[in-house]
Amino acid sequence: MMRVRIIGAGHSDRGDDACGLVAADMLRRVAGPDIDVVDGAADAAAMLALFEDVDGVIAVDCARGGGTPGDIVRLPADPAKWPKSRASSSHGNALADAVALGEALGALPPRFAVFAVVGTDFTLGAPLSPAVQAALPNLIRTVMQEAACMKPN
């Protein structure tokens, strides 16, 4: 049986950068008991640990650039091609670094997908922007469809 984990990446206090975490909270309610939904880690090493022991990972993040605010984009397998993702994290982009590190170590799960919502406001303390807020229902549907593809029964 396929084991799937959904990871919500981001930072809770930096405006749209929280959208992966907000999405994870929503997904926890709809995903059912056989899909593990977790918050992402703050650094690449801890993030990479979240890729272990599963057959498929779906990460949800916020992108800066790469589309119009609110757009949902599926990021390419190579993180070097991702749009800059963090506005003001002082620790780089944990998710992109973890994917690159996992690739170098041969430690990525067989199935891997990353969806990002294009954000616009990354101010410390700001709420989600209306564009990102409006994109959430669609994001949840997209992630659940992907999870269903990974988990055929």
């Binding site: 880690a41 690449a44 090493a45 801890a46 990479l48 640990a49 670094d97 690159a100 590190l101 690739e103 170098a104 170590l105």
Partner: peptide, 24 residues
């Protein structure tokens, strides 16, 4: 960066990752 280190010193990086995981 660490990605290149992982390519040249894979076992070393794996050791570091496991140590860090224990701290976490």
């Amino acid at each position: 960066d660490a990605v290149q280190l992982a390519r040249t010193h894979g076992d070393l990086v794996r050791q570091g990752l496991r140590m860090k995981k224990i701290g976490n």
